[in-house]
């Protein structure tokens, strides 16, 4: 452990809290319809959108109507992104003449971006036209985040209102989320990224001459593009020399900003935030992780303000922060360890600080950008998987077995540690209801949360929301490791191959989108299976969340008495963390034992 992790984490959390505090208050006011001078400037645009779409902003919705609007809107989004990919060859802004994307990949990508997952089975710079990137993917980056924001605001209204039959108007919540929260933040961050060197253009890709020729080895392919194998079945390698390199171009900064602030994570380039055109400097890297946590952290404070007790928001935010900090330390500690397999070969892996520049980082540098190093990569990995972002600045697949287990487990906790825009908080509030229910059982009182009695229907919906994720992850993984098409995509045999499949389904169901890269997932089997996982992982949680919102809004608010469980203090924070960890642990430990745990033991046993 070195001092850098303490410094970087402390600085990150301090700046995060300073930014989240005013933003949380701003979002609460915006979503309640209160005006700022800045907002009043855009009110005509908001009214024009309502008129154009035939929406009456004064009419509120019950939970079922709200849920129906969410599903309908997102269905149209999937159809739109699917059509764009299939027709991109005949549409403008395609200087590289990209062909139409295959049907199964289009299907997967459309659902991936609409559900805020941004799982990418394709290589961005070799597959998508600029029009598809901008009108399809970037637009859904805004819309999917706005959907999450709208849903969590509806849920907060469930707590804040009493004896009400409505939870808001989806179209109004959605429009305000895009217009007043996501667009201004994305604009600010995009301009900052451009200042740091992120590119923003519509140029054709550039071919440049290398300073010196590069010789490299790659598998030899036949005319059909399949690997050539020798008599023993081993892939034949060929050695090539190149003097030129093609540099992909594109409108990257505008997509990069919303990719982070909307917790989307889908990179313009395949290398994502490890690519110098997406994440050029350490400062850009810092702002990227800040942007990921910004809205999820702010929403906790929005929650406190809207329910009339700021301490409630701080309690939830404290629980999230404590889990995150512990996980960041664990990931960093694992990555700082030297690889025992390399030590066995006599390689010196001790940190080398004797030179003017660092020659040996002293830990696991495989798959990491030397520009960022172990600490910034470990923090990025923890942030991107604690939130449901999924952007990466290093290869999670190359982490040590235990270092890789941290992002995997954070995803499996249900993306409630900060989580996605909106989805993180509504997921955590589901656990908060579970926590007060368990506390109620322990002390023999009817459970209450924020003065609302938690009854049978609410607990049925909580159970559904919590169980859907593990069911889809574990059943999906089990199917994939049993059928031929699933096993065909596993490039690393054994425990690590299992981890890759488990990570893929965990990431898809919980709408994260990052990957253990060793899985060949752009096949019809994985494209379809993961699309099912993403859609139902998203909407089978949103539906019960809205049902709970509707149910809570109808209830009367009970007065707080000396018998009420305080939900703003350390005791509740510990109880909430316990619920999240224990439910996550009980659900996934057997699967984790088959993957990263076996891999770790095997590595240290010298296998």
């Amino acid at each position: 452990m070195n001092a850098s992790i303490y410094f970087q984490l402390a600085l990150f959390l301090a700046v995060l809290m300073l930014c989240a505090w005013p933003l949380g208050s701003y979002i609460a006011n915006i979503m309640s319809g209160e005006g700022y001078r800045f907002v009043r400037l855009f009110k005509p645009a908001e009214r024009w959108i309502y008129r154009l779409c035939g929406v009456d902003p004064e009419i509120e919705m019950g939970w079922k109507q709200y849920a129906f609007a969410v599903i309908l809107f997102n269905l149209l989004g999937v159809l739109m992104v699917y059509a764009l990919q299939r027709l991109q060859a005949d549409l403008p802004f395609n200087p590289q003449a990209m062909a139409a994307v295959t049907p199964d990949s289009s299907f997967n990508t459309a659902i991936s971006f609409v559900t805020n997952t941004n799982w990418q089975g394709y290589t961005g710079e070799a597959t998508m036209s600029y029009l598809t990137q901008m009108l399809g993917l970037a637009v859904q980056n805004f819309f999917s985040a706005a959907t999450g924001l709208a849903v969590v605001i509806a849920m907060i209204r469930g707590f804040a209102r009493h004896s009400a039959t409505t939870i808001g108007n989806f179209w109004v919540d959605f429009t305000r989320s895009v217009l007043y929260v996501l667009l201004p933040l994305a604009l600010l961050i995009a301009v900052f990224f451009m200042g740091q060197g992120v590119i923003q253009n519509f140029d054709a890709y550039k071919t440049v001459t290398l300073i010196e020729p590069l010789t490299y080895t790659q598998p030899k392919l036949d005319a059909a593009g399949a690997p050539v194998v020798d008599a023993a079945g081993v892939a034949v390698q060929e050695t090539l020399t190149t003097t030129t390199q093609t540099l992909p171009m594109g409108p990257v900064a505008s997509q990069e900003a919303i990719k982070m602030v909307g917790t989307n994570g889908g990179g313009f380039f395949n290398a994502n935030s490890a690519h110098p055109y997406e994440n050029p400097t350490p400062l850009a890297n810092f702002v990227q992780i800040l942007a990921i946590f910004l809205i999820p952290a702010a929403l906790c404070l929005t929650f406190g303000k809207m329910v009339g007790d700021a301490r409630q928001g701080w309690a939830v935010l404290s629980a999230m922060t404590l889990i995150f900090v512990v996980m960041a330390f664990l990931a960093n500690a694992a990555e700082m360890q030297a690889n025992p397999a390399l030590a066995g070969m006599g390689l010196d892996q001790t940190p080398n600080l004797s030179q003017s520049h660092l020659l040996q980082a002293g830990g696991n540098m495989e798959g990491k950008e030397t520009r960022f190093g172990i600490v910034a990569t470990s923090i990025f990995a923890t942030v991107t998987t604690a939130a449901s972002c999924g952007a990466v600045n290093g290869m999670h697949d190359s982490f040590t077995a235990l270092g890789g287990m941290v992002p995997l487990w954070l995803i499996q906790l249900g993306e409630v540690v900060f989580g996605g825009v909106g989805s993180g908080l509504y997921g955590m509030l589901i656990f908060a209801i579970l926590a007060v229910f368990i506390a109620g059982l322990m002390i023999g009182r009817t459970p209450e949360y924020l003065g609302k009695k938690i009854e049978a229907f609410d607990m049925k919906m909580v159970s559904l929301a919590i169980l859907v994720g593990p069911f889809l992850v574990l059943v999906g993984t089990a199917i994939a490791v049993m059928v031929t098409d699933g096993k065909a995509g596993i490039l690393n045999p054994g425990a690590h191959g299992f981890s890759e499949v488990l990570y893929a389904f965990s990431s898809a169901v919980n709408n994260n989108g990052s990957a253990f890269a060793g899985l060949s997932a752009n096949t019809p089997f994985y494209n379809i299976m993961l699309a099912i996982a993403m859609w139902f992982g998203r909407f089978l949680i949103i539906v019960p969340v809205l049902a709970i919102a509707g149910s809570l809004a109808r209830k009367k608010r009970l007065a707080t008495t000396s018998g009420s469980l305080p939900t703003h203090g350390p005791l509740f924070v510990v109880l909430l963390i316990g619920c999240v960890i224990i439910v996550g642990a009980l659900t996934y430990i057997p699967a984790l034992a088959l993957g990263p745990v076996i891999e770790h033991l095997s590595l240290h046993a010298g296998n």
Binding site: W63, A67, Y82, R86, S106, I111, A456, K460, S551
Partner: peptide, 30 residues
């Protein structure tokens, strides 16, 4: 092939709407 995937998308949405109905029958209408 496109028709199959488009049908799949609509089927997903239809199934989700059925879940809404199922949830309301569990007591969400009360």
């Amino acid at each position: 092939m496109d028709l199959i995937y488009l049908t799949g998308i609509i089927l997903f949405a239809a199934l989700t709407l059925l879940i809404i109905k199922g949830c309301s029958r569990l007591g969400g209408d009360l």
